[in-house]
Nucleic acid binder design. Sequence first.
DNA 1: GCGGAAAAAGCACGACCGTCCTATGAAGTG
DNA 2: CACTTCATAGGACGGTCGTGCTTTTTCCGC
Lengths: 199, 199
Amino acid sequence: MRKGELTHQTILETAVRLASRVGLQGLSIGGLAEELGLSKSGLFAHFKSKTELQVQVLEAATAVFTERVVRPALGKARGEPRVRALFDGWLTWDRDKLLEGGCIFVAAAAELDDAPGPARDTLVQSQRDWLDCLAQAARIAVAEGHFREALDVEQFAHDQYAVMLGFHHAKRLMRDPQAEARARRAFDALVAAAHTPTS
Amino acid sequence: MRKGELTHQTILETAVRLASRVGLQGLSIGGLAEELGLSKSGLFAHFKSKTELQVQVLEAATAVFTERVVRPALGKARGEPRVRALFDGWLTWDRDKLLEGGCIFVAAAAELDDAPGPARDTLVQSQRDWLDCLAQAARIAVAEGHFREALDVEQFAHDQYAVMLGFHHAKRLMRDPQAEARARRAFDALVAAAHTPTS
DNA sequence: GCGGAAAAAGCACGACCGTCCTATGAAGTG
DNA sequence: CACTTCATAGGACGGTCGTGCTTTTTCCGC
């Protein structure tokens, strides 16, 4: 029971990378098998269905995201530094070679937003956790006195997410070389507004 | 040459609606034909290829968007009222029955961001025009004295777009009932920041 | 090294895909 | 009304899709 789990892991790694390029729907069993040098049926045996593959791909991507973005930020000082670290980590994540096709969650969000099922449920849960994480970081920043008392931390998390979506759009679709600079400016404005009491 | 163009138009209408649900890739010739009660080959004859269909769907959607969002806003007073009208029209657009599957441009952006070709080119041009339209409205608001002199109008357009992307994400994927309220609050903050000189 | 278990391959299935070719029907023109 | 042009239907093609069988190969504990 060791060799199996190893290839299982390898499959998911490649699948995440491939899905970032072609999407969760576009990720085909046959194509994935060929990329790995496996037979279609041999690969299929690891997942009972394509839906299960999609779910596991999303879970694997979430795990990588947590490892690469969330965990490093938790090492930073509580409050605004950590909020900024989360944002910086996010920008880095989008630059990762693992995701040549752009953030897999953004792609999946567009594909699954009207497709009820286990894959959608998994994605929504993952996104909810991430938004909660962002809100919690902002909440701590309020407690530390970095952000104003009355700040709506859920709104802050929502706005922060919107900035990232704008960044992704500008960079990946529009190929705007200023995408990152624009995103940083937008985020700085958000943080500045969180400082001043009731702007 | 009359009957043909009529059905051509009918096909595109249905195609836009269908594509908003299943995406541009998911839009299949056979499925579209069945929805319309046409034969697959009869429908295919109107477009030389699937790519051409996708391009025309995007063009048709752009035309509708211009008609429903841009044109009404041009009837509003120059400056901030028009900027706000564009935003309001945008929110309304997303509520339109024509787009039960969510804004077709958002879906297409995720699908095409790594798929070079005529469809991508058409989408990028459409988005560029729209961003230019938003920036121009902001520029007028500066000229009218509503927004501060030094405002970076391209950044403003970019940020406005980001707010809409955040709205779409919150509403369609997360099913957040507060999505619209959040979007309005974010946009108001953007406008407020455009008022004050160098925040 | 052997034998049982796990992993991968081979193969076939029905369904749907985009595309093309050909025939038939209807629309428009003289 | 005849004739041409155009719009649609029918059918077939090579492919790929997800998914099940059965067989073969590989791994691992004794």
